[in-house]
Design a protein around this nucleic acid. Structure first.
Length: 365
RNA sequence: UCCUCAGUAGCUCAACGGCAGAGCAUCCGGCUGUUAACCGGAGGGUUGUAGGUUCAAAUCCUACCUGAGGAG
């Protein structure tokens, strides 16, 4: 039986409610995966994620290859055992690092060579190597190695990224021998024709799932929304669609409506550490002086342990004092908020009320 | 009572005759498959006080005030 089943649809949009079966439990979609690049969701314990019914986290094969290395993870019995997480793990292959570490890599038809200050040595990543890593880690969802161009980028560069990503997807599929599901990634930047042209060859390869990549790398919000909607429509109806790296709570709702099923984003954890939190009322920058004596919780309707116990004034004080608990507590709230937001989206989908679900404002409180 | 040293941004200190600066703090902005508990911007001064020397003084001189240390 195909691991992805859809059992409810939104009559007013392309949104669907599904289940993705993995070797480490069911992922109820639409689903948000907290980002744990190096095998830890920064500031948030796995106990909490389990308690909050988080079904999957994202890690990064490239970063784990650099540190601690595949031997260490292999000796531990795989990535789940090494990090102590029993539920599903999705690993990105390192394609994003081709963009984010652009100053320290050389890209060729064969693969990409990274060299940098992490441990002083060079690391070569090919599609085959990325598959070997992810297979050895024993992850539940592995990603093909792709090339993620930044925005803005020359059209020719985006076109080259599309061709390489397609070629590398083919090589990834041929090389992957792991226990998980392998997803391919659609590129094309903001160019509708490149997206349209890139999708069919990938679909011909018949991956069990497809991702939309190269989104939210510098474009406007409008571009993010339109590319996402276009790309989702190019991907198979019956397979999971993973929108990589997106986004804000409002982005997530819009993308669910566009037909996406899986999401990850650093915003809840990174912004939590930076003192920026998401609430039903809007976004709160906790360091602002106006919260100095605000005894209300971050979000009065939030049921997270931080909002149940602490006031904005207290959290601001911790943040201003640089107490280690501040970034942790704010990340905790944000991750809870994201997981809860996706749960509300799923419930609305099941109840057929998604159309009426209001997105949290992106304005500041 | 005398001697020595020190007083510069909220704090710690630079500048030692030639445009008064930095770090931290404060305030503001940014962050979308993490090189990020990060990056960027702004505000903030009668240089302890009062005189003097000089084209020019935070800087040199005099007195006073405050603080630290020492002597008696």
């Amino acid at each position: 039986m195909f691991p992805f089943q859809i059992f409810a649809r939104d009559p007013a949009s392309s949104a669907r409610r599904g289940n993705l079966t993995t070797n480490h439990g069911e992922i109820e979609t639409p689903c948000f995966l907290p980002v744990g690049t190096r095998g830890a969701v920064k500031g948030v314990e796995f106990d909490r994620l389990e308690e909050w019914d988080c079904r999957a986290v994202l890690a990064n094969a490239y970063h784990l290859m650099v540190r601690p290395g595949e031997e260490t993870i292999g000796a531990a019995g795989g990535l789940h055992a090494f990090i102590g997480w029993k539920r599903a793990i999705l690993t990105d292959s390192g394609g994003f690092q081709i963009m984010s570490l652009a100053s320290r890599r050389v890209i060729t038809e064969d693969g990409v060579e990274f060299r940098g200050p992490e441990d002083g040595s060079a690391h070569f990543l090919t599609p085959e190597r990325a598959m070997q890593l992810q297979a050895g880690f024993g992850v539940d969802i592995a990603m093909a190695l792709d090339v993620c161009p930044p925005f803005p980028a020359e059209r020719a560069e985006v076109g080259r990224a599309c061709r390489l990503s397609e070629d590398w997807a083919r090589r990834s599929l041929r090389a992957y021998r792991g226990p998980g599901l392998l997803f391919a990634i659609l590129q094309g930047g903001t160019h509708e024709d490149l997206r349209r042209r890139s999708a069919p060859p990938l679909l011909d390869l018949d991956f069990p799932g497809y991702a939309i990549g190269g989104v939210a790398v510098g474009e406007t919000k409008e571009a993010i929304r339109s590319i996402t909607a276009l790309s989702a429509g190019l991907l198979p109806e019956g397979k999971p669609r993973y929108l990589m790296g997106v986004g804000t709570p409002a982005d997530l709702l819009a993308s669910v409506r566009a037909g996406c099923d899986l999401f990850d984003c650093v915003l809840p954890t990174r912004n939590g550490r930076m003192g920026h939190v998401y609430t039903r009322q809007g976004e709160v920058t906790i360091k602002h002086e106006r919260f100095k004596d605000d005894l209300a919780p971050l979000d009065p309707e939030c049921r997270c342990p931080v909002c149940r116990r602490h006031s904005r004034a207290y959290l601001r004080n911790l943040f201003v004092l640089k107490d280690f608990s501040a970034p942790m507590l704010l990340s905790l709230h944000n991750v809870y908020f994201y997981l809860d937001w996706m749960k509300r989206i799923r419930e609305a989908l099941e109840a057929g009320t998604l159309e009426k679900l209001p997105a949290p404002p992106e304005e500041k409180v």
